[in-house]
């Protein structure tokens, strides 16, 4: 019963990502959307936390990365970039979705 978790808050403003990561289970996917994508920036405190997560797929929405000027070279490794169609695929390939609003 894999879960897709969406996180839409900057980890530097709210503890949403932290709370999400405290509740993920092996095989789950965390998709960063909207201001949630700021977590992937290399050297950032949140990126260190993300990089330490094991057994969970981390993805980020390309439209939100691009809109915020976060290019591939600024991102930590191990984050899968998906477009809206990829977002849809993550929704259908997981059993359900928890939005960490």
């Amino acid at each position: 019963m894999a879960l897709l978790h969406t996180v839409n808050k900057s980890p530097y403003e709210r503890n949403t990502l932290e709370s999400c990561l405290n509740h993920v289970q092996e095989g789950d996917t965390v998709l960063l959307i909207e201001d949630g994508v700021y977590a992937v920036i290399k050297g950032g405190r949140a990126a260190d936390v993300l990089a330490s997560v094991k057994g969970v797929k981390i993805a980020a929405l390309s439209a939100d990365l691009k809109a915020r000027g976060i290019t591939a070279d600024k991102m930590i490794d191990g984050v899968e970039v998906v477009d809206y169609g990829g977002f849809v695929d993550l929704v259908t390939s997981n059993d359900k979705v928890q939005a960490w609003l």
Binding site: N8, D35, L61, A63, D64, D83, Y84, G85
Partner: peptide, 15 residues
């Protein structure tokens, strides 16, 4: 942005 994300998601799902 939630309204935009929802719209773009809906379009992609229909596509």
């Amino acid at each position: 942005e939630a309204s935009d994300t929802a719209y773009n998601f809906t379009v992609a799902a229909l596509e």
